Amino acid sequence: MPPRRTTLPTRSRIPNETDPPAAAGRRPRDRELVRTLVWNILSINSHMEDIRYFWAGVMRISGPQWLIVMAVHDLDRGNGVSVREVSAKLHVDPSFVTTQTKQLEKDGFMRRKPSSEDARVVLLSLSDKTYKGLANLSTQQEGVEDFVFSDLSEPELVRFTETLTMLRLRLEKASLRLAAEV
């Protein structure tokens, strides 16, 4: 086992305009602009969490349970979806999904059954009660989505989604790199 690092990592120096570009054809990033972007993303996350808790409250489940329900809804193609797939989509530990889906099953929102191919794998699917609840919310959800994204054309929404996906993947890699350094 390698020895634990006892010093904090050094803070990177902020480049100035006399520094050479980071890569050919690229100028150094405007750090203030990057900080503004990060704060906007954090603010968006906070507002999305508020909305998530609102929808969860209407269904009488918790915010994390709402995310699990939505992940199963998005991933299930009619045969159920594994706990592992749901935990990967939500970036949470499978044991958390297992615990929460047991409660959702007890409350009538979820079905859990062993896979016919591998009994160790639990497949999740939504109950009729959940589908009915989601159907009742769909008009309201579509109204919120229309309001939020009304100023983006289809090509702009595609480009924005691609950009966010790229940022998500890079942040995931950065997180892994930082964890490896500690």
Results as ranks from 00 to 15, higher is better:
69 V>M: 07
33 L>C: 09
81 V>C: 09
14 I>S: 07
43 S>N: 02
84 R>M: 01
60 R>T: 15
34 V>C: 03
11 R>T: 04
96 F>V: 12
31 R>T: 08
32 E>V: 07
24 A>Q: 14
80 G>W: 03
19 D>Y: 07
31 R>P: 01
100 Q>Y: 09
64 P>S: 10
54 F>S: 01
30 D>R: 01
83 V>A: 07
45 N>F: 08
93 D>A: 08
94 P>W: 04
82 S>D: 03
61 I>W: 01
28 P>W: 15
25 G>N: 08
19 D>K: 09
73 H>G: 02
34 V>L: 05
50 D>R: 13
12 S>P: 14
62 S>Y: 07
48 M>Y: 07
10 T>C: 07
88 A>G: 03
21 P>T: 03
19 D>V: 07
56 A>E: 00
58 V>L: 11
43 S>M: 14
27 R>A: 14
16 N>R: 11
88 A>F: 05
35 R>Y: 12
100 Q>F: 03
71 A>C: 13
28 P>A: 13
11 R>C: 09
74 D>N: 15
79 N>M: 09
94 P>K: 02
73 H>N: 06
77 R>K: 07
70 M>G: 05
22 A>L: 15
9 P>L: 10
39 W>C: 06
18 T>R: 06
23 A>K: 04
16 N>D: 03
28 P>R: 14
68 I>V: 07
9 P>M: 08
22 A>S: 09
64 P>N: 04
28 P>Q: 14
15 P>L: 13
59 M>W: 04
56 A>R: 04
38 V>N: 06
18 T>P: 01
31 R>F: 11
10 T>K: 04
40 N>Q: 05
69 V>S: 00
62 S>T: 12
59 M>Q: 07
80 G>R: 01
70 M>D: 01
40 N>Y: 00
88 A>Q: 06
33 L>Q: 12
56 A>Y: 03
97 V>R: 08
81 V>E: 04
99 T>D: 15
49 E>A: 15
35 R>K: 13
97 V>C: 05
56 A>T: 02
74 D>A: 15
55 W>P: 01
87 S>K: 05
76 D>L: 08
98 T>I: 12
78 G>D: 09
95 S>W: 05
77 R>Q: 09
24 A>V: 13
48 M>P: 00
79 N>Y: 11
76 D>A: 12
49 E>C: 13
93 D>H: 15
79 N>I: 09
36 T>I: 10
81 V>H: 11
8 L>K: 05
77 R>I: 07
26 R>W: 01
53 Y>P: 00
48 M>G: 08
97 V>M: 02
49 E>R: 14
35 R>D: 12
13 R>Y: 00
28 P>H: 15
74 D>G: 15
16 N>S: 11
96 F>N: 10
54 F>V: 00
6 T>N: 02
60 R>P: 04
90 L>W: 15
40 N>G: 09
37 L>C: 13
11 R>V: 08
22 A>Q: 04
48 M>C: 06
22 A>H: 02
79 N>K: 05
21 P>H: 00
17 E>F: 14
98 T>Y: 14
35 R>S: 13
62 S>L: 10
33 L>P: 03
47 H>G: 09
60 R>I: 10
87 S>G: 02
64 P>H: 02
